[in-house]
Computed example of a mutant assay.
Amino acid sequence: MCDLGCIAQALLRLEKQFGNDADGAINFRFAWTDLADLTAATYETVFRTVKSMVNEELLSISHNRITIKNHPGLAALMQSPQA
Rank of each mutant, 00 (worst) to 15 (best):
T39Q: 05
D23N: 10
L12Q: 05
A36R: 03
P72D: 14
E56T: 07
A8H: 04
T67Q: 11
L58G: 04
V54K: 05
V50W: 07
A31N: 08
I7K: 01
C6F: 01
G19K: 13
L77H: 09
P72S: 14
P81E: 06
Q82N: 01
I61V: 15
A75I: 15
R29H: 06
Y43R: 12
I66E: 02
V50R: 11
N20I: 08
E44G: 05
A41F: 00
V50I: 14
V50D: 05
P81H: 10
I66G: 02
I26S: 04
K51T: 09
L35C: 09
L4D: 12
I26C: 03
S80R: 15
F30E: 05
E56D: 13
S60T: 15
S62L: 12
A10L: 04
T42I: 05
K69W: 04
M53C: 00
A22Y: 01
K16P: 00
T67V: 12
T39E: 07
E44Y: 00
S62D: 14
D34V: 04
L11Y: 03
S52F: 09
G73D: 07
Q9N: 11
G73F: 09
A25R: 07
M53V: 01
T33H: 12
E15D: 07
L11F: 04
I7T: 04
T39I: 06
E44I: 04
A36K: 03
T45W: 00
Q82P: 00
E57V: 03
A22D: 11
L11R: 03
I68S: 01
E56C: 06
A25I: 00
L4Y: 13
I7H: 02
C6D: 13
M1D: 13
V50E: 07
G24Q: 08
N70P: 05
G73N: 07
A10P: 02
D21M: 07
R29W: 02
N55M: 07
G5M: 07
H63K: 15
G24M: 02
C2S: 14
V46K: 01
